[in-house]
């Protein structure tokens, strides 16, 4: 049985259709990342699952039970907010214990203590337990916020961009740590973010959300390599995918000004939007010229901006490749790396 199931969930917020006809299932131990730009409806989705918003229509099942109309407290899910939302005047210990002291839980004091210690150990915040929450750094606050979510062992974690307010180094550290934590707790996670790298590195499956609709839901690898639409393709990858309007003739795909670009299948449409990732562009071996406009060094690789047949193309090549601005190159892309969308 899936941990969470949404069937045709829609939600309108004022003039905005925040969610329209959202359907997916979350497996029992699955880590699902919802990826989308600001305003895509990510947070609304989480708030709807948490019960802070009621869907206008659709079915929302937690562990097989329809909970669309139930209060947040009855759902036994934990939500971690982007801005941490700790109780600032309380100590870390009190913050962690707070969810355990809710009416109806009736845990013995020793059990509360035990669970707080367990969570603190897991998140490596034991030495902070007696500190007031307002004195913590961002990373520490987020650990405590996650600790507050795990102490009561909910059936589902909802994470609202929990790493966005942290600095880059800490973000990468916590990414690995939290992925590992979710695996150990064997609790499913619904994680939303606008960071494609986060989505690709953490998720079992990625759901790409745009304007309240799920455009594609698949493994990170498939979403990255076989995006269903240019819109999805554009959301993943840095530098972004090249999308060029091309025409086909017997020689293959031709760039806007007529230069050949790469070979095409015989049954391909005559006019198409051609997509290929910068890392799949090679600078030699092609049959037409391009001019290097800009070279940006990123350490292990360099991004080369080319003017090629009337289009601007990004290529990501190893730093060892010798390339300079104004240099002429003969770029090429292997046909198997090309994504074709009819125009």
């Amino acid at each position: 049985m899936s941990a969470l199931e949404l069937r045709g969930v829609s939600k309108r917020l004022g003039a905005v259709q925040a969610l329209s006809d959202v359907s997916f299932e979350l497996g029992a131990h699955e880590f699902l990342v919802v990826l989308g730009p600001t305003g895509a409806g990510k947070t609304t989705l989480l708030r709807t699952v948490a019960g802070l918003e009621t869907p206008d229509s659709g079915v929302l099942r937690l562990g097989g039970v329809d909970v669309a109309q139930r209060a947040p407290a009855e759902r036994d899910v934990a939500l971690v907010f982007q801005n941490f939302s700790l109780y600032p005047s309380k100590t870390v210990r009190e913050n962690l214990a707070f969810p355990l002291l809710a009416p109806g839980r009736r845990l013995a004091a020793a059990e509360v203590d035990e669970r707080v210690r367990w969570a603190a150990q897991l998140l490596r915040i034991e030495r902070l337990l007696e500190r007031p929450a307002r004195q913590l750094s961002g990373g520490e606050m987020q650990r405590v916020a996650i600790g507050r979510a795990i102490v009561r062992r909910p059936r589902l974690f909802l994470m609202d961009e929990p790493l966005t307010n942290l600095d880059a180094k800490l973000r990468e550290e916590l990414r690995v740590e939290l992925r590992e934590l979710a695996r150990r707790l064997e609790t499913p996670v619904l994680w939303v973010t606008h960071d494609a790298a986060e989505a690709l590195s953490m998720a079992d499956r990625v759901a790409v959300l745009s304007h309240g609709r799920i455009l594609q839901l698949d493994t990170p690898r498939t979403v990255y390599l076989r995006p269903v639409s240019p819109l999805v393709a554009r959301q993943l990858g840095s530098p972004p995918i090249n999308l060029i309007e091309v025409r086909r003739d017997e020689a293959g795909w031709r760039l806007p000004s007529g230069e050949p670009c790469c070979s095409a299948a015989g049954d391909a449409p005559r006019e198409a939007l051609l997509g290929f990732r910068p890392e799949h562009v090679r600078l030699e071996g092609g049959s037409s010229d391009a001019v290097v406009e800009l070279v940006e060094h990123l350490g292990p690789q360099q991004v080369v901006v080319l003017r090629w047949g009337g289009a601007t193309v990004h290529a990501a090549v190893p730093s060892s490749v010798d390339v300079a601005v104004h240099q002429r190159v003969r770029p090429t892309v292997a046909a198997e790396h090309c994504l074709v969308w009819p125009r």
Partner: peptide, 20 residues
Amino acid sequence: SIYEAAQIDRASPWKVFTRI
């Protein structure tokens, strides 16, 4: 969001008032 966190944490209204 602090109130919402408390709501999800199942805090009673009295507790929300006295603790938050």
